[in-house]
Design a protein around this nucleic acid. Sequence first.
DNA 1: GTTAGCACTCAAAATATTGGAGTGCTAACA
DNA 2: TGTTAGCACTCCAATATTTTGAGTGCTAAC
Lengths: 343, 343
Amino acid sequence: MELDQRKVVILTTIIKNYLETGEPVGSRTISKYSGLNLSSATIRNEMSDLEEMGYIVQPHTSAGRIPSDKGYRFYVDQLMENHKHEIDDVKTEMFEKVDRLETTLKTLVRNLAENTKYAAVVTGPSIRTNKIKFIQTSLVDARRLLLVVMMQGNIVKTSSVVLDGAEELDFNRVLSINMLLNDVLNGLSVEDITEGRIGQLLARTSYKGTVKTIVDSILNMLDINLGESQIYTSGATNIFKYPELVDSDNASKLISAFETKDELASLVKESQEQADGKKPIQVYIGEESPLQNMSDCSVITANYELGNGLKGTIGVIGPKRMDYEKVLEILSKLQSEMDQAFQ
Amino acid sequence: MELDQRKVVILTTIIKNYLETGEPVGSRTISKYSGLNLSSATIRNEMSDLEEMGYIVQPHTSAGRIPSDKGYRFYVDQLMENHKHEIDDVKTEMFEKVDRLETTLKTLVRNLAENTKYAAVVTGPSIRTNKIKFIQTSLVDARRLLLVVMMQGNIVKTSSVVLDGAEELDFNRVLSINMLLNDVLNGLSVEDITEGRIGQLLARTSYKGTVKTIVDSILNMLDINLGESQIYTSGATNIFKYPELVDSDNASKLISAFETKDELASLVKESQEQADGKKPIQVYIGEESPLQNMSDCSVITANYELGNGLKGTIGVIGPKRMDYEKVLEILSKLQSEMDQAFQ
DNA sequence: GTTAGCACTCAAAATATTGGAGTGCTAACA
DNA sequence: TGTTAGCACTCCAATATTTTGAGTGCTAAC
C-alpha cells in the first residue's frame, strides 16, 4: 500500500490532534478538522489502512487511534525536513552578559525548561578536550597550596594541594613554579598532558616533588570533573504535568535519572556520537530513547559547538506526545546562538 | 483525664505499630502486642479515652486508630528525653579525608539519604559569618582579573572581574594589590566589610578604581552565594517509596522544593533560629513543618557548629510516619562528629 | 470512490453487593 | 470497680454488575 497525499494529511491531523489533547482521535474528529471534506466513513477506511501500515494504533477496539512510534517518526522526519532552513536570526537577550560559561549554561537550562515545560538538560563542554588557559598556585599555609586552573570558556576549577613538606617553599619559589606551569601547560587539554610533557616540566625545576604533586592534582581534578558536575538540569518536576508519565512510573524514573545524572551522561554521550556523524539535532521517540525503561518519553538533543572548538549538548525530555515542532525550533535557535555568543 | 502509665504504653504501641505498617491499628492488635495482657475490649476503652484526649484519631468509623500530630509529638518528646545521653562515640569513616568542606558535605548528604531512605539536605556554613582566609587576584588578560577567595573551611569562591581599563595594570601592580587586600580583609566576614574598611583600603592604594571594582566583586560574589548554591541535597526520589506522600501530592511538592531550593533555604533559616535558642535538634511534625503545604511530612533538623564558629544545618524530610528514633540517632551522631572532624 | 446506516465492541463511569475489620455498648464476672 | 465476652452496628475496600457512549467495521446505496 502507498502513503498517498490524503493519507499523509489524515495522519498529520491525527498526530497534531493527539499532541494537543492526549486523547485517542476518532474518525469523526478528523472528518471535521482535516479540511478534506470527507465523511467519517471514508476517514475510517483510510485510518484502517494507516493502521495496517503501522502508523497508528488502537489502544483497544472501539477507541480512536493514537500514533505509533513509527507514526511519530514519520511526523518528526517531515518536520525536520521543513525546518531545515528555518533557523532565523531572532536574537534573545540570553547571552547579553556572557562572562563565565557555567553561569550562562545554568541560565540557559532554566530558561529552556521554563519555555518548553519539559525537563531540560545542558552540558558544558567536555573538560577532556577543553584547553588550559591559565594556572595559578598560591601558598595558603606552610603545607598547603591553593591551585586554580582556568579553562577556555572561563571555566574555573580549584583544588587544594597538600604537600609533604620535603621541599620548603616561599613566595618567590611559588612564583617561579607558576611561571613554569603556565609556560609548559597553557593551551593544552588534559589529554595533551602526557608523560613526556611532565618529564619536560620536571627537568626545568628543582622543586620536582612539589611540581609533580601539583600536576597530579590538576589531572585528578579535571578527571573528577569529567563526570556529573558538568551536567546542568532543570524542570524535572515539569514531568508531573503529564499524567501518562505519572501513571506509568516513567516520571519517578526520570526524576531519579535527573538526581543521579549518570544516565544523563550516557544520553549525552550517545547524542554526541550521533552529532559527529553530522546530525546536529536528534529526536529519540519512545523505545528509541537511550534512557532505560522510558518508553513513554521522547528525547530531543542538540549539539552545539563554540568557535574555539568546545562542544556541548542541550536536551529536552518530555512525554512522547511533546510539542516536537516547538522544541525543535527552540533548540535549533539556541544552537545557532551559542555559536555566535562566543567568539 | 490523666495520661497514666498504661495509656502511655498503649499509645506507644499504637505509634510504633503504625510507623512499621502504615495501616490503622486496631484494638485486637494492641491486645496481642502491647505485652499488657488485656483483652481487646479493655484496650478499646483506653483507646476511646486516648482519642478523646487527642492523641489518636480514627480515619473513619470502624477503622483502627492512627496517631494524631499531638500523638507523634508526645512520642517524639519522649524519645528526645531518653536519647539525650545516648550520643555514643562510634566513629564513622566519613571524615577520613577532610580537605574541602564542600566535598565533605556532598558525601555527607548522600550518605544520609542512603542510610535513612528519606530526603536529605545539608547546608554549608553561612557565608555571611564565614571569614576570609586568603584572597588572590591574577591578571588573565588586559581587561580581566581572576578573583579567588578562600574562606574558612577551605571553601573557595572564584569570579572574574572585568575592568574598565582606565588604570593600567601589570604583574607587579597586581601583586601589590593582592598584598593590600589580604592585609586589610583577611579574617573578616562579609558583614565586617564596612564602608569604613573600604575607605581604609582605598586610602592605601593608587589603583582606587581597580580595588573598588574588586571589593564590589567580592561582596557581590559572597552575597550571591548566600543563597542556593550552599544547599546540598540528595535522595529526593526516596519520597516515592511512601505511597501516602505520592497519593496526596506532597511528593511532587517536595521534589519541586528540592529542585528550586528556595523553600529549603527558609527551612534552614527557621531551624537555625530555633538552634540559637539552645535546641540543637528540631522535629517538625506535619503542620508544624516550615515547608508549605506538606502536612503529611515531618522534618528533622540538626544544627552543627564547627570549632571555628562556623554553623550549618543537616536535615531529613520524610513521611509523618518516619522512623524518628533512627533519624534522631543518626543526626545526633553526625552532629557530634562534625564538631570533632574540624579543629 | 464516497457515504449513510446499523449492529457491534469495549473501556470507563456509575451503581450495587459483599466481606471483614473494627467499633461501642451492655451485661456479666472477679 | 476494673475487666471481659458477646453482639449489633458501621463503613471502607474489594468485587461484581450495569449503563453509557464513543468509536469501529461492514454493507448497501448513491
